[in-house]
Every structure is written in C-alpha cells, then in structure tokens.
Computed example of a mutant assay.
Amino acid sequence: KDEAIIFDCGCADTATEVVETLEKYGYKSDRIKAIIISHGHNDHYGGAGIIAEWADAPVWAHVTTAGQMLNPWATFIAPYNWFSNLTTENWKWFQEKAGKGIRCQRMLYHGDTLDVAGIRIEVLEIPGHERGAICLVDSATKAVFVGDLIQGGMDASSNWLGLFTDVASQKKSLNLILEMRPQWLFKGHRIFRKGEEIRQDIQSALRRLEVIESAILDILKISSSCNLAELTTAVYKRVLGQSPVGNIPPDHALVTVHAFLVDMSLRGLVRRTQDLLWEIVR
C-alpha cells in the first residue's frame, strides 16, 4: 500500500497535471517505484520523462516502444503516420505531446515477471493496435491492464473506426485476453470493465473487426476498384453511419483500412493494382 507503479503517463504537456493529481491523492514521489509504458504512442509515453524526474523512478517499456520513445522523429514518421501532412506545424504539435526523447532503463519482453511495489505482475505482448504493445497481468487480483488494445473506438457501437496496425495480431491479442478470463480489465483513457462486461467488450471488439472486413468486401464488389482514400471514406460511412469531416478520412481510419487490406491480401481476398487501386481477387 505504500508503493505504486504508474502504467502510462499521458502527454508531455499534461505531465505536470498528472504529478499534481498524484500528490493530491497522497502519492508522493518516493512512493513511485517504476513507470511502465503500454505502447509507443505519445499520449501514453509523452509525460514519462517529466514524471520519472519528479519520482526519481525508472521507465520500463517493450524494446520496440523504447526505441519509439527515444526518437520522437522516427515515431512521427512511423507507419501509422504515413498519411499525415508532415508539416512544421504538425511536428511542433507532436513534440509538445511526445517530449524530447525518453530513455528507458529496462526493456520488457513477453513472459517477463516483475516484482515491484510489493506485487508480482506478468508482461504479455499484445500487438495489434501498435507493434510493441504490452499488457500487465496481476494474477493475485485477476486484473489486466491493456493500454489501447480495446479502445472506445473498437466496440461495435462506437462512433470511431479504431486504430489498428496489424489486424491478425489484433484478433490474436483480443482472444488471448478473452481466454484469460480476468475479473478486472483496465483499458486506456480511464475506462475499465469488470466480470461479464469484459467478455462482452472483447466480443464486441472482435465483431467490429468482422464488420469492417465485410464492409470492405461489399464496397469493392460494388465499386470494382478503389484507391485507399475512396475506400476508407466509404467504409467510414458504412460502418459508422456518417461521413468523415469534410469527406476526408482521418489518418487513423486510413491506417486501419490499410491494415485490413494488407491482411486480406495475404489471405488472397484482395489485391493492389499497378495503379495503386484495390480490388477483389476473382
């Protein structure tokens, strides 16, 4: 009860607020024994440098995430930002969120066991939303902390398409958590589930994957062939029942649909033409 771990830190420009909140609830700096990062997105790791300095605590992350944290520029131009406008303004915004580069003191791998802050937790790799994503498992309380594996945008009723970089891995990771039957599931962005809600949440996320793939196939059957932007806009409308702002699909939707197309092409369902159009394999 006297010691604690921080799992994810928010952005660099909100780190001071995190520290103030921790102190407000009695978590003085000497109580924080480690800072663990779920995956390499700036809204999860950006504040780690400031919080680690305040707590004088080590930062731990998967080896892939550690590289992303150390080099924000590489993260900025990483695959999930392929479709962004790489402008000076966007880079300035990204730096404010990601910080100036954070060095990890320990690299984490699948199956690692951590004895820290008076508890024992297991590290499991759960790629799908992002490569290098991990979850923490506390067997004593049957609690699992999954970061953004199951976001608000991944259930069937959400008004957000979701962000996936690897569809096959996403399915595998969701089923891994489902088979564990945790009693508590802590997702990113202040969302948690308990008991039967967890199974329902994961099954809903799996259904969302089926819905997106079905939408892609239906659209390509009607349209014959589409470029990525056209297809993503059509998927956005069909799955969410609304058009993207300005009829321009956001980057996360482009990345998600592209991940589906890659997965479906590997299974022989679709292919990309020399004109960079996508079509069904007939």
Rank of each mutant, 00 (worst) to 15 (best):
L22D: 01
H44Y: 09
I35H: 07
W54H: 14
I32E: 13
V59M: 05
E17A: 15
T16R: 14
Y25M: 10
H62E: 15
T21K: 12
E23D: 08
S29Q: 08
A55K: 06
G26Y: 12
A12T: 00
V18E: 12
A61Q: 08
G49N: 10
I32K: 13
A57C: 05
W60V: 01
I51Q: 13
Y27P: 02
Y27F: 13
H44I: 02
R31Q: 10
I32P: 14
I51E: 12
W60C: 04
T14M: 06
I36W: 03
D13G: 02
Y45M: 08
V19L: 11
V19Q: 11
D43V: 00
R31C: 13
D30A: 10
D13I: 00
E17W: 14
P58R: 06
G47Q: 01
N42D: 08
V63K: 15
A61V: 00
D13W: 10
G40I: 01
A12W: 00
A55G: 08
P58N: 10
A52I: 00
E20M: 11
V59L: 06
Y25S: 09
I35W: 06
G40D: 02
A61S: 14
T21P: 03
Y25V: 13
G46N: 07
A48G: 08
T14Q: 09
E53Y: 02
A61C: 13
D56Q: 15
G49A: 10
D13C: 09
S38V: 01
V63E: 15
A15Y: 08
H39N: 14
R31A: 13
N42G: 00
T21C: 12
D56G: 11
A57N: 06
S29N: 11
Y45V: 05
A34S: 15
A12S: 15
E53S: 14
Y27H: 09
E20H: 12
I36Q: 05
I50W: 03
I36A: 06
I50D: 11
K24D: 09
H39M: 04
Y45E: 07
G40K: 02
H39S: 07
S29Y: 02
H39D: 10
V18C: 14
S29F: 02
A48Q: 06
T14E: 09
A34V: 03
E17L: 15
I50P: 03
E53G: 06
G26S: 12
A48M: 05
D56P: 04
A52H: 04
W60Y: 14
V18K: 12
D43C: 02
D43Q: 00
L22P: 04
A55W: 05
A34G: 15
K33V: 01
L22G: 02
V63L: 11
W60S: 01
D43K: 01
C11G: 08
E23H: 05
D43E: 07
A57S: 13
E20C: 08
E23V: 08
W54K: 08
A52L: 02
H44E: 13
D30F: 11
A15N: 10
L22S: 03
D13R: 10
K28A: 11
K33T: 03
A55L: 05
I50R: 12
A48K: 05
I51W: 12
G49L: 05
I50A: 12
T14G: 01
A57D: 05
H41F: 00
H41L: 01
A34T: 00
V18Q: 13
I36K: 03
V18R: 11
V19D: 06
I50F: 10
G47A: 03
